[in-house]
């Protein structure tokens, strides 16, 4: 930086009343000694004075600015934005979890389907046989073991001289699943 620039900056600081006492005196002497610097000083003094005068004149903006009204408006803005932010947060969470909810729903539906499918097999397993036997009196009999059930039914069928006899319990059913809930095979009337 040139000396001239530094001096000009010092003059500006001098006019702005920001120089320490020692430097202030030095600049004062320099300005008095040089007509050129005196012209620079004079120019900046008038210019800065004009700007400062304008700054003072426009410092109060009360006629176009109501502080209390501003605070009320700001409060409203904050409340609105906060509630909107909360709502958007809920929406965001819902959007994030919609996939999980869909998967859970689909899994539940599938499980229900499987359960119903198994139930229907449990119920329908002896039906063709029951129809053949023309069963009338309903009762419930839980069969502990498929093989035992098969044997006892077979014996009964033989005893009542049933000409054709088919009985099967699907192998994939567990023992506890097997229930005869329709008219029992045990009560056979008029085979």
């Amino acid at each position: 930086m040139s000396d001239r620039q530094t001096t000009t900056q010092k003059i500006i600081q001098y006019v702005l009343n920001e120089l320490p006492a020692g430097e202030r005196l030095k600049i004062q002497n320099e300005v008095q000694a040089s007509p050129e610097l005196r012209a620079v000083y004079e120019r900046y003094r008038v210019l800065i004075g004009t700007l400062k005068g304008d700054a003072e004149a426009t410092a109060t903006l009360d006629h176009i600015y109501d502080e209390n009204q501003f605070i009320v408006a700001l409060q409203q803005r904050i409340e609105t934005q906060e509630s909107r932010r909360h709502y958007s947060h809920v929406l965001f969470l819902a959007r994030e979890h919609v996939f999980v909810v869909f998967i859970l729903f689909f899994t539940a539906i599938s499980l229900m389907g499987v359960w119903r499918f198994k139930q229907s097999h449990v119920v329908s397993a002896p039906i063709p046989y029951a129809q053949r036997m023309s069963l009338k009196r309903p009762s419930l009999l839980a069969i502990q073991q498929p093989s035992m059930a098969q044997d006892s039914v077979f014996q009964l069928a033989q005893h009542h001289r049933v000409p054709e006899f088919h009985f099967s319990i699907p192998s994939w059913l567990s023992v506890s699943d097997v229930r005869i809930t329709k008219p029992s095979l045990v009560d056979i009337k008029n085979p």
């Binding site: 620039q5 000009t8 900056q9 600081q13 900046y44 210019l47």
Partner: peptide, 18 residues
């Protein structure tokens, strides 16, 4: 230093412009 220099330039320009 940059502030001082910018103010110097601004005032110079203002005194020429106004």
């Amino acid at each position: 230093g940059t502030v001082k220099s910018l103010l110097n330039q601004a005032l110079k320009r203002l005194s020429q412009d106004m």
